[in-house]
Write a protein that binds this DNA or RNA. Structure first.
Lengths: 212, 212
DNA sequence: CAAATTTTTGACCGGATGGACAAACGTTAG
DNA sequence: CTAACGTTTGTCCATCCGGTCAAAAATTTG
């Protein structure tokens, strides 16, 4: 079904990476429509026709970025499994998500942009791969609840709230920094957030028959 | 400093409302750059030059929308005060925010779009009005913590997480619905979310020396 | 080195888009 | 009724933007 594995020269590899890096920067701040090929080309240090030699259409760049993004994006959730202690599993999931918001904010914003506009390009993926992945994890979480290892609550909305709170620090970064001001909004803000989220979720999820 | 109060005919009032309503729809789904005057004009049932008779520039429409939005948007936070019971106050704040996500998702997305793109048009407001409003409320929350009425935690990130979790249901609505599927993702999803968030925040915030 | 291949560029095209403008049309007040 | 004012529209323009193309420049291959 896929295109035959395209043979690529060294230059093609490098230039394509350069373009994708530049495009990530531009798309994530201006959205798909807001970004222009010229902008991306300039950010990548090449001319527009040159860029179009490596990617024939603007959409092709965007598609490639989105596909890559989703692979890494769902990594942390995939790793959530039921072998370890539930609270430890959830803690490290929250950590990893927050680290991704810190280390890959552009990817997060690219994704947010896509969803905000109705997910026109990735709807099938949301309804397919993502949905079934979440269902799988929901089953695990439900198991923990049945076993009394975490408090009973809605597993779907638990996952949503973890997504929301962690991605907030990437997507709404300017707002977070503006509100916190120069000192609180410095590099330490992610550690503060990590501490807070851990307290919020883990204390909230601890089974009530066990003293805090 | 402001423009002298513009006198407006009845028709101007009505048509301007019509345009703003249409523009909210278009801007919130396509972003500022992605939206075209033609689209807005068509959605408002008038010709492009006609629309430009009421708003001279595309930016003027957007600005007006953003200004209106912010007034109502910060309403719930403004109402948070320290006269009532802390947990009740927080509960109703979360409720109100979630209701706004449900009833005004386009406004939420418009705001999200703006922030995602670096808040170019509202940066001063974030650093001014919003920042000081949050500081005021943080002081209230800190008072509650000192009085032992809620558990000690980071008040700034508490506010951020309430924003994040509630707005998520507006901004990421397509994703939420796609993941939940037709039955869980139906009209009941906001009630499920409300129940979950209440449990998450209020149980998590309850002082620990009082049995759950 | 020379031929073959890949990469880069300048010039160009067509359509979309924000906006201007004057003329036509409608409304209202005297 | 008519003059003044408010509203609507068709037409037009300049710019931007995605994308093409042929030819020049650079690189690889034999």
């Amino acid at each position: 079904m896929n295109a035959p594995a395209p043979r690529r020269t060294r230059i093609q590899q490098e230039k394509r990476e350069l373009i994708l890096e530049a495009a990530l920067e531009v798309f994530s701040t201006h959205g798909f429509r807001g970004a222009t090929i010229d902008q991306i080309a300039e950010a990548a240090g090449m001319s527009k026709p040159n860029l179009l030699y490596y990617f024939r259409r603007k959409e092709e760049i965007h598609e490639t970025l989105i596909q890559r993004l989703l692979d890494t994006w769902l990594g942390p959730l995939r790793e959530l499994d039921d072998v370890g202690d539930p609270l430890t599993e959830l803690r490290s999931y929250i950590r990893r998500k927050l680290e991704m918001a810190r280390d890959y904010p552009r990817e997060s914003r690219l994704f947010a942009n896509e969803i905000l506009q109705g997910a026109p390009r990735i709807m099938p993926l949301l309804e397919g791969e993502l949905k079934s992945l979440v269902e799988e994890k929901v089953a695990i979480i439900k198991g923990w609840m049945r076993a009394g290892k975490i408090v009973r609550t809605d597993p779907w909305h638990l996952i949503f709230s973890i997504w929301a709170t962690t991605q907030h620090y990437a997507d709404f970064d300017v707002q977070v920094r503006a509100v916190l001001g120069p000192d609180l909004g410095g590099d330490g803000r992610f550690e503060d957030a990590a501490r807070f989220l851990e307290q919020l979720f883990l204390d909230g999820l601890k089974p009530k028959n066990i003293a805090g």
